[in-house]
Design a binder for these strands. Structure first.
Lengths: 185, 185
DNA sequence: TATTGTTATACTCTATAACTATA
DNA sequence: TATAGTTATAGAGTATAACAATA
């Protein structure tokens, strides 16, 4: 307690506090997204019997249309490889994806959508879109959407480009290939 | 609007598709927040040994300074009462909060921060703020922050006003639609 | 040796339903 | 009866570490 500042909000660490505007923005952002995620989860569970993580995996596969390796598939969705194996196991058991070993690199596993997986994705996408429109986009103007997209794209790219955490001990490597920049969408 | 067969993005349901700009916004938002949450969780766990949910509960109590009932405390943080009881149990066992029955209404439980809880909150808040600044605010201009705060406040209030969350009707059947994909109703 | 992925395991968290007790 | 909260329990999800196979 050597601060001579009149911080009053716990910042006694040489860390300048966030402005009230930033704090309000921060909490509004996290709470709004939390509510959004919760509703989206419910819609996906009810209509498709899958979780949001699983939906994201299906979406990644649907977007690519060529099989992806597990490592590629993990991108931005899952933070541990065993977690992805677990989810892929569920999706495979449900008949939504197939896993096969890559001819090029025998270590890799190629993941592809089955017809059922593609059909499920197409079936639940409209409801998914409707929920996000109802909850997220309805109260926003076109300009809001543009600005929000611009902001969050920058923030996301900023976070993706961040150096690995300095606090990370030597053996830490949870994310996929930190040196490899994100591939084109 | 009966099938036009030219949708190409799965919207064959009478649901107008989101504009590409909206889709991009939507995915950027969710991914950015997911990354942010992950980093924040790590900071809180490392520096304070608590989860983000627990941090939010402590923050709510710190902001109010008068004890809150469990119901008040749940606001926006937790989606089931048993979940809050679980988290409150953890926080109480850790000596960070106290629970006592309310003198005014014997059914209610009053939750208050202990000195240790308040101290922990003050101790980890700077690091929390630093992480959010580094990840979220650094790539943003003041105008971005203002606009983002305005947008997310509106979105949050919109969602809060929409469905009575805790009004889970009894007719709600278990949401597992085993392996048979749900049929659209 | 490094990389890709899987397995085994332990743990955290959430939600539903049944329960107690107060109003 | 309705409300506030707890308990019991079951299930989903995650992360770490040890492992096998390939590069």
């Amino acid at each position: 307690m050597t601060s001579t500042r009149t911080a009053g909000d716990g910042s006694d660490d040489g860390v300048p506090p966030l402005h009230p505007e930033q704090l309000q923005t921060y909490f509004a952002l996290l709470e709004a997204v939390s509510l959004l995620q919760h509703h989206v989860e419910q819609q996906l569970r009810t209509e498709g019997g899958i979780s949001y993580v699983q939906f994201q995996l299906l979406a990644n596969l649907a977007r690519s249309e060529t099989p992806l390796t597990m490592t590629q598939l993990a991108d931005g969705v899952v933070y541990s490889r065993s977690g992805l194996t677990y989810q892929a196991g569920l999706l495979e058991k449900a008949g939504l994806i197939t896993r096969s070993s890559s001819p090029g690199d025998e270590r890799a596993t190629l993941v592809a959508l089955t017809d059922a997986g593609a059909a499920l994705f197409r079936r639940i996408l409209p409801g998914h879109i409707e929920v996000s429109r109802l909850l997220l986009f309805n109260p926003l103007s076109d300009d809001d959407v543009r600005h929000l997209g611009d902001i969050m794209t920058r923030v996301r790219d900023h976070m993706r480009a961040l150096p690995p955490r300095s606090a990370a001990p030597r053996k830490r490597r949870p994310r996929s290939t930190p040196d490899t920049p994100a591939q084109a969408d």
